[in-house]
């Protein structure tokens, strides 16, 4: 499944080519290439400010790449004639700060996209929504609002919100960084399950245990560039680059 860099002949789920991103004069992404094969989990890691979030957000164009090509499931999505809303509906995204909608119940958070983007009836949407909540172990919290839930529960609702849309791929931006330590495992367990079920995922995370177990490939970023990438045993175990070694050293 996992490979290093280019994979001729296959059709990757996500293909990023020569991605550059400027914020004003600030050159944040400096020509990144990445392919994510179907059913694999690609992990992005690197020091704060290295551009991981920006790169991830370019994958569903929440952030507009300044130049380069983004392909999802073979289709180029950074073009004018693309209906980006329909594309985004197929790409789930989970944020560090959960970003649940605080004025809606957990169930309404999960069904919102089904009703207003997928055009499902409310009845149908609630059925799918309850199933999604059950899948993350929160069937009994359907009617509670986010402020009444713990951080770990909120993040699992956020995962259910993405899952309900039946996405082709899930993007995670440091999903456990805002959580109290005792809640980290419940979110990681959910993500691990998704990985074994064959969900394609891109995960920004520094949870080394989780990455060793679940990641097909680890990508080390620094200063808007990819330093090295490979299977976790290699990148986390015997990294080639000094930059990766010092970074891992600081994590431990």
């Amino acid at each position: 499944m996992s490979g290093t860099g280019a994979t001729g002949g296959r059709d990757p789920m996500i293909e990023m080519q020569e991605i550059h991103k400027f914020f004003g004069p600030h050159h944040v992404l400096k020509g990144l290439d990445l392919q994510v094969e179907r059913g694999t989990v690609v992990a992005l890691m690197g020091p704060s400010g290295s551009g991981k979030s920006t790169f991830l957000r370019c994958m569903n164009r929440i952030e507009e790449p300044s130049s380069g090509v983004v392909r999802i499931d073979g289709m180029r999505i950074n073009e004018l004639r693309v209906n980006i809303d329909q594309v985004r509906a197929d790409i789930g995204m989970v944020f560090q700060e959960y970003n649940l909608f605080p004025h809606l119940t957990a169930l309404a958070n999960v069904t919102l996209g089904l009703v207003h983007v997928r055009g499902r009836s409310r009845r149908e949407a609630e059925e799918v929504g309850r199933a999604a909540l059950a899948r993350v172990g929160l069937a009994d919290r359907a009617d509670q609002r986010p402020p009444e839930l713990s951080g770990g529960q909120q993040q699992r609702v956020a995962i259910a919100r993405s899952l309900a849309m039946r996405p082709k791929v899930l993007l995670f931006d440091e999903p456990t960084s805002a959580l109290d330590p005792e809640m980290v495992h419940e979110v990681l367990d959910t993500m691990r399950e998704l990985a074994t079920e064959g969900m394609t995922m891109v995960v920004v995370s520094h949870e080394l245990g989780f990455l060793r177990e679940a990641a097909s490939r680890v990508v080390m970023m620094d200063d808007g560039r990819i330093v090295e990438e490979g299977p976790p045993s290699q990148v986390l175990g015997e990294p080639e680059h000094e930059r990766t070694r010092t970074f891992l050293g600081k994590l431990l």
Binding site: R57, I62, V87, R88, F101, G113, H116
Partner: peptide, 28 residues
């Protein structure tokens, strides 16, 4: 910003995001 990011990531359009997510919270 995270609220409109999350709505956009679900595939809601700008108008839908404003109507279903931003305005109800803004009213508070």
């Amino acid at each position: 910003r995270g609220q409109s990011d999350a709505a956009a990531a679900l595939g809601l359009s700008g108008v839908q995001t404003m109507w279903h997510i931003v305005l109800p919270q803004a009213f508070r």
